[in-house]
Structures are given as C-alpha cells and as structure tokens.
C-alpha cells in the first residue's frame, strides 16, 4: 500500500531533486527564457514538501496542502501549473489514507490534466506538457514503469527540436530550436522520482 507517509516522502524527494538540479535548470532556462526555472522549482517544491509534511489527513489533503504551498511560495508559471496538477493528483488518490501501489501511477495523468487545463497548452508547443502528456498516455495504456520512463524521456528530448508556441520561449521562434525546454526537463526529473519511489524501479 501507498500511505500518507509515502506521499510525504515523495514530495520530499521532489524537493531534494529540484534543489540538486537548480543551477542546471536555470542554465537551460537562460538559453531560451529568463533563467529562473530552477529557482521556482526549488522554492516551490521545498514549500510543497514542507506543507505536505505538516499536514495530517488523507492523501488528498496532503496533495491540496502541497498545491497551496507551491503556489503561494513562487507564483511564476510553474506555480499555477503544478498547483493545479497536485490538486488533480489529490483527487485521483482520493480522501483516503492509503491506496494500492497500482493506483499511484494515476497521479501522472492527473498532473498532466491539471497542467493542460491551467496552461491551456497542447502537446507539441515545447512545454512541460511534452513530458507529462506521453507519460500520462503510457500510464493510461497500462505501460510498465520502464515504458513510462522511456516515453517521458523521449518526450522531454523531443522538445529540443520544437519551436515554442507558448510561454516565454515563444518569442524566440527558430532560435529556441536545439535547446530542450527546461520545464519539460524538470518534469522528467519529477516523473523519475515518482517511478523510482512508488513502484518497483524500472530495473526490476
């Protein structure tokens, strides 16, 4: 079973990973954006993890607290997007204190839905959705963890060749081609953390 403690550990893992990758993500963002993506993700996930850790209640309560924590800490673009994603993830897990391991992957399509709803984006626009969307579709199609990881990795990598049509990189036109989208790269890191901690890792 996947418990509230496991969920808190997952948010803590998100925070630790974003802290580690902060400067790398900022450098990616500097090439095609404003250079602060790593900072927003680090601060947002730190606040999400703190709010999650301090919340007693159901899996949904913890996701809601993490969403609010992330949003109020950073704003930016990632704030509303991940906050909405976490709210949907909480709905998918439900007002319970544990779910079977098999249900945990449902947070990937839920986060995808929240991000797409809030950002009004579609796949192919060189955004974080280009990672979340193929991963979500793989989960819905019953793929193994290894397959989900592979599609997410391909999705993030594919943003390299895309021209942005949404977000700050949009104004760059062809100059953004050749650079991966930093939001897609951080999304892949989060999916890696979900897969590594919740299900038997891909190596099994």
């Amino acid at each position: 079973m996947f418990t509230t403690d496991d969920l808190k550990t997952l948010f803590a893992a998100f925070a630790a990973r974003m802290a580690t990758e902060r400067d790398h993500l900022c450098a990616l963002d500097g090439a095609i954006g404003d250079g602060d993506h790593g900072i927003a993700m680090e601060q947002g996930m730190a606040a999400a993890a703190k709010a999650a850790a301090e919340t007693e209640g159901t899996l949904q309560d913890i996701c809601n607290a993490a969403a609010k924590g992330f949003l109020n800490a950073v704003g930016a673009s990632s704030g509303p997007l991940y906050a909405t994603g976490f709210l949907r993830a909480g709905k998918a897990l439900g007002p319970v204190t544990s779910v079977p391991q098999a249900q945990v992957l449902s947070i990937i399509p839920a986060i995808r839905d929240g991000i797409a709803h809030r950002g009004k984006a579609v796949p192919g626009q060189k955004t974080m959705l280009d990672t979340w969307h193929p991963a979500a579709e793989a989960v819905i199609g019953g793929a193994t963890a290894a397959e989900v990881l592979r599609t997410a990795t391909e999705g993030a990598e594919a943003t390299r060749a895309m021209t942005a049509t949404l977000g700050r990189a949009e104004r760059l036109g062809a100059r953004a081609v050749g650079h991966p989208d930093p939001g897609a790269v951080s999304a892949l890191m989060l999916i890696e953390e979900i897969l590594a901690r919740i299900v038997p890792p891909p190596a099994d």
Binding site: N72, G75, S77
Partner: peptide, 12 residues
C-alpha cells in the same frame, strides 16, 4: 510583488 522575475501568486 513577485519573486525576482516571477509573477506573484494569486494571493498578493
């Protein structure tokens, strides 16, 4: 007021 180069959240 947002963080550096980042939109404020809705609450402010």
């Amino acid at each position: 007021i947002g963080n550096v180069f980042a939109s404020p959240p809705p609450q402010p």
